[in-house]
Simulated scan of single mutants.
Amino acid sequence: MPHTLSVDAPEQGVRLITLQRPEALNALNTQLLDELAAELALAEQDAETRAVVLTGSRKAFAAGADIKEMAERDLVGILEDPRVAHWQRIAAFSKPLIAAVNGFCLGGGCELAMHADILIAGEDARFGQPEINLGIMPGAGGTQRLLRAVGKSLAMQMVLSGQAIDARHAQRAGLVSEVTLPELTIERALAIARVIAQKAPLAVRLAKEALLKAEDTDLASGLRFERHAFTVLAGTADRAEGIRAFQEKRRPEFTGR
């Protein structure tokens, strides 16, 4: 059992992972990232899990990297940092990942939230990349994902000043899809996960992959991938079931085939 996370299955097809390092505002140390990567790998392999919600506490989603652990690393330790592999495993997760963010979402915490496909934020959420205040810079995708999410000007402002933005600002900028009351953040994220979990798994996976292609490829290449994925799905049992259920005016029963 993980020591820095709790894992539940509150809905059919949905897994809820909660960061639990309250004494450090869920600061991301090596152990937490290792356990999170392992839990996502289990969710990836579990056919019954069709969407994952990731959250923290009401006070903090994650307040950043563990500064105490960071201070103990010399240059060799940084170059051989095992957390790099953990971040890569988290980034490789192919099922829908929804982040439910309350409170502080800073530094590594903001970078972790940006690994999610959908971000739901409580009104008290604060997003930022304050690494510049320590004489360093984001190192887990913060400069790359933030710019793609909010645009050059705001990303530059956040990274170079170290100043955070609130949930409404994050929503207007495109970092967050919805803002809720803090007490409803997880509930809303689970509701979205429940809807996604009822869809055809293969279609969801390929649709996610196609959308992500749009971030790192040209339009022509993205359109080719989209058309290929569409064609692949045309031969699935779930497509036949979806059309049949629509014609019969009933809920489809997708099997992932």
Rank of each mutant, 00 (worst) to 15 (best):
H3K: 02
R15Y: 09
Q20F: 04
R21Q: 02
A27Q: 14
L28I: 12
N29V: 01
Q31W: 07
D34V: 05
E35L: 00
E39D: 02
L40Q: 02
A41T: 07
A43M: 01
A47S: 14
E48F: 06
L54S: 08
G56M: 02
S57D: 03
A60G: 00
A62M: 00
A63N: 03
A63E: 08
A71I: 11
I78L: 14
E80T: 09
P82K: 07
A85K: 04
S94L: 02
K95L: 07
V101S: 00
C105Q: 01
G109P: 11
C110N: 09
A116V: 10
G122H: 06
E123A: 15
D124N: 15
A125E: 03
Q129F: 13
Q129G: 02
P130W: 13
P130S: 12
E131Q: 15
N133W: 13
L134A: 12
G142Q: 03
T143I: 11
Q144P: 01
R148V: 03
S153L: 12
S153Y: 05
L154C: 06
A155T: 07
Q157P: 01
M158R: 09
Q163R: 15
A164S: 15
H169D: 04
H169W: 04
A170E: 00
G174E: 09
S177V: 12
V179Y: 08
P182C: 12
L184M: 07
T185V: 12
R188E: 14
R194Q: 09
Q198M: 14
L202M: 13
L206W: 12
L206E: 08
E215I: 03
T217F: 10
S221M: 09
G222R: 03
F225Y: 13
L233V: 11
A234Y: 10
G235M: 13
A237Q: 13
A237T: 14
D238K: 06
E241F: 04
E241L: 05
I243H: 06
R244P: 00
R244L: 15
E248V: 02
K249H: 12
K249F: 11
R251Q: 14
F254I: 04
T255K: 14
T255R: 15
R257P: 05
